[in-house]
Simulated assay, not measured.
Amino acid sequence: MKKRLFFNKYNEMKYISHLDLLRVMDRLLRRSGVPIKYSQGFHPRPKISLGNPISLGTEAFNEPMDIELKEDMTNEELLDKLNSKELLGFEFIKVIDIDGKSSIVQDYKDMKFEIEGLGSSINKFIEFISQDEIILTKEKRGKITSKNLKPRIKEYKVEEEKLILVLENMSPNSLFNLCGIKIEELEIKKFGMVK
């Protein structure tokens, strides 16, 4: 039985890395008494699947996670069990049933971000992302690769000094780095994924 959980990660929990988040989820599921299914083999792992990693320092709301259960449970039971172990800066908000073929990365490609703290840099950033091409060049093991990030910017607008961005399978951090804006001076919130 496959379930999709939706959670919020905020305050100090925004400093938990993607790998640490998987460990936190594993412990939380075990402590809550959720009958999670494990992989076979020498190092069994819980059948947990997250979407694109949440960047360190980014608060995330309505974030999806898929799990597989070995026993049937109602969505209400599961939500109650998960939220019975209080974890500061973290909460589950919804549970839905999904079929075995469903995948977060395929179901949710576009992600909405709200950014505060750009101040006078907001016009510089809007001008930067308004270019026809935004090329990101990376070097890995002596091999240089380039990709155009522009097609991944689906929507952007400014509302009350907040920048709203809708991006496809990407964090805004790459864009800020390319534009020369310090990420640590910004407050970035990820508001679930746009279907």
Rank of each mutant, 00 (worst) to 15 (best):
L69Q: 11
E187Y: 14
E76A: 01
I54C: 07
E160N: 15
E127F: 11
P46H: 08
E116Q: 12
G57D: 07
I54T: 07
K124I: 10
E63I: 09
N52Y: 14
Q40W: 04
R45Y: 03
A60L: 10
E12L: 13
I188Y: 01
S174E: 08
L5C: 10
S103I: 12
L149A: 07
M73C: 15
M73W: 02
K9C: 03
P46N: 01
M65P: 14
K157F: 09
E185L: 03
E187L: 14
L82Y: 03
K143D: 13
L19R: 06
L149H: 00
E12N: 14
I183M: 09
I122S: 01
K37M: 13
K85Q: 11
T145G: 07
T74R: 08
K70D: 15
C179L: 00
E155A: 07
L163D: 07
P44Y: 02
S146F: 06
K37I: 09
R31G: 01
N83D: 05
L165H: 03
G100S: 15
R152S: 12
K124P: 04
L136Y: 11
I16G: 07
M73G: 10
L186W: 00
L118D: 00
V24D: 13
D72T: 13
N83P: 00
G33N: 10
K147L: 07
I134S: 01
M1S: 11
I129N: 05
I115D: 05
K162I: 02
E12Q: 12
L87H: 08
D132M: 04
S146L: 04
M170T: 10
L79A: 06
D97R: 02
L29S: 10
E12F: 14
P35I: 03
K70R: 12
E168C: 12
G33R: 05
F191S: 09
K124T: 13
N11E: 15
R141L: 10
F125G: 04
Y108L: 11
A60C: 10
L165N: 03
I48H: 02
D110F: 00
Y15E: 14
F176S: 01
K94S: 15
M1I: 12
N11G: 08
N52M: 12
G57Q: 06
K195E: 13
S121G: 07
Y10I: 09
L178R: 00
E77N: 04
L50V: 09
L28P: 11
T137L: 00
N62I: 13
D80T: 15
Y15P: 07
D20E: 01
K109Q: 13
E59G: 05
Y10D: 14
Y38A: 06
I16E: 04
N11C: 09
R141Q: 12
H43S: 12
K3V: 02
P64F: 03
T58E: 10
G33A: 04
L78D: 01
K140C: 08
E76L: 04
K140G: 06
G119F: 06
N148G: 04
E187S: 15
H43L: 10
S39D: 03
V158I: 11
E68R: 10
L56R: 10
R30W: 04
D66E: 15
K14T: 09
I104A: 03
D80L: 15
Y15M: 11
E114G: 04
Y10S: 13
E161I: 06
S49L: 07
K101L: 11
N148E: 02
S102M: 14
G180D: 02
F191A: 01
S174A: 12
L69W: 00
I144G: 06
R23C: 05
R141P: 11
R30L: 01
